[in-house]
Design a protein around this nucleic acid. Structure first.
Lengths: 339, 339
DNA sequence: TTGAAAGCGCTAACAT
DNA sequence: ATGTTAGCGCTTTCAA
């Protein structure tokens, strides 16, 4: 491993100039810069991040705290963030909080404090007041994705609007008995998300002059299996079966499709089903859904941090653009069967 | 942020003693140690990883290079590795190589060289000779998971044996016409894995005195969709339909189950289906499968590295124990229909 | 067992 | 625009 000194010697300049040329801070003549670049390339020089961080206080490393790795939304956000960081020359250090509360504590009391990261992205995590405060005291920027954190810049789709859109799609097709599979409250990772989606659903019904029937709600855990069981309940009733189901996630919607099939119902002829996400499998199952773009959310979180960490870089302005979502109509929704 | 000096002052010892007491290297009297621990706790002292790394050359950080984040096997390995590392006080820095070859180059030429990691775990990646050499030159231990890397300690299940086991399960039930859905060769991430599984399948058939019929092989891409289409081909033939399918992954097996259903076939009455993985969804679909334990593989990779990085720690001996796998019989396999 | 002090390799004032 | 140099906050010899 060649050091900065060797590069300086080979380029015939001082180490300070090498540092400046390589990091882009401060002015360096084009001539020196190219000499430095050549020398560095020739020696295969790569800056020692530790020495650099120690001297500068910047690590070029972002911590991502995330509760799941094996769920579509989360891995997509992570993928988006990782890609964006790589492009900016940043590393991503991963903290997967798998429920264990001791783990969570040690991450916040220890790992995040050892000056290894410049900023933190928290995915679908309701950070506590002290957790936020701790990061704030350290001067570490923090941005949330997909879960509201009080006092912190957070990227979330408008869950009420998304749910309303999905429900209105069904209403527009003529459905009146629309069931909803939402979150169960034990699933309190992010209490607001299922609640907001339920509100969107209820608002859409109310606006259409339809009374909300609590028997048409079934809770589940956002998995295929959960959606399957919930839909069995909803669709198995002998009379007044709903003609449509709006599930708060694509996985639950897919579970519902499978449940419908098992009950001998043809989707969408007998029952229409719509989800939220545009999961990888949605297309395969012909699922109509409201797409959100978690990858993009991860990228966006990075852009926001870059704005704060490297002001004056080329990143786009952090205008408070709402996150996009989009109805994707496939073959799981149609007009209801004639009464 | 309290520094080591403040801790030293409060504890009434030198910074050297604080360092020793906290890191556990070198001898410290019990008395000093407890004074140091108290002082550190009281001040909320956390060592600066940069300063520590710079001085010691150890980072307590492991790089994980992985091609996918959104697939069950990969996210499970990652989860296992992350958990194990956390327990050892290590951070995990993630490098997700999403196919882009420039990305891969920059990770190996740059990111991994900036002294930010003590070792590297490569998941299902065929590292090239120079890539391995580069890490080797830096003295960074490297361990592979799930893909053979020449000259590197690698954790992989015995794919031949696993496939043989799955196939023998079907044979034992009385099946004779057993189809196989394996990898397509474009899917060359890890060329050996599908090949080995195919060999295991073929070996089992041969040993049972059954001729391998190439028409009973269908390639797919390890996804549900891919398995679905492959199974449609296999099961849609008008005569001599196979009575069983062995799919090289659970996702493809699940696709096969869905395909069978669409063709009006009842699983396992009309066709038996077995996979490999014990994917999260296997249980839901009643899929018989050979379980591998990717989480465990991730943990194990960490243990091996710890052994090298912190000799004499408490880790288990790195005996060359083969990775476990296990047949899980559920409801997707049964005796074949009477001819 | 402990302390003093010399770095680890780089960055950022400051000076020129 | 460039060089000089004093740290960044620890760890680790070395000596006591």
């Amino acid at each position: 491993m060649a050091g900065i000194e060797e590069v300086a010697r080979l380029a015939g300049v001082s180490t300070a100039t090498v540092s400046r040329a390589l990091s882009g801070r401060g002015h360096v003549s084009a001539a020196s810069k190219s000499k430095v670049l050549d020398a560095a390339a020739q020696l295969g020089y790569v800056v020692s991040s530790n020495a650099s961080s120690l001297a500068s206080g910047r690590t070029r490393n972002i911590g991502v705290v995330i509760p799941f790795l094996n769920r579509w939304f989360f891995s997509s956000v992570l993928e988006g963030a990782q890609g964006a960081l790589l492009r900016h020359g940043y590393d991503l250090t991963l903290y997967n909080l798998s429920g264990d509360s001791g783990e969570r504590a040690s991450v916040f009391e220890h790992f995040l404090l050892r000056q290894r990261v410049d900023a933190v992205i928290a995915v679908s995590l309701e950070l506590t007041e002290p957790e936020v405060a701790r990061l704030h005291d350290l001067g570490k920027p923090l941005v949330g994705v997909g879960g509201p954190i009080s006092g912190v810049r957070t990227l979330t789709i408008d869950d009420v609007a998304v749910a309303r859109l999905a429900t209105e799609h069904l209403l527009a097709l003529g459905h009146r008995r629309i069931a909803h599979i939402g979150g169960d409250l034990e699933n309190d990772l992010d209490f607001h998300l299922p609640t907001n989606r339920r509100h969107g659903y209820e608002n859409a019904l109310s606006d259409a002059g339809i009374e909300v029937d609590p028997r048409l709600f079934a809770p589940a855990d956002f998995t295929i299996r959960g959606g399957f069981h919930a839909a069995k309940q909803l669709l198995g009733v002998p009379r007044d079966r709903p003609t449509a189901i709006f599930a708060a996630s694509d996985e639950m919607a897919i579970g519902s499709i499978l449940a419908a099939r098992e009950l001998g119902l043809v989707v969408p002829r007998d029952v229409s089903i719509v989800g939220i996400d545009d999961h990888d499998l949605a297309d395969f199952f012909g699922l109509s859904t409201v797409a959100q773009f978690p990858r993009f959310q991860g990228e966006k979180a990075v852009e926001i941090l870059m704005e704060q960490l490297e002001p004056g870089s080329d990143s786009a302005p952090p205008a408070a653009t709402p996150l996009p979502f989009e109805l994707r109509v496939r073959s799981s929704t149609a007009t209801p069967p004639p009464a």
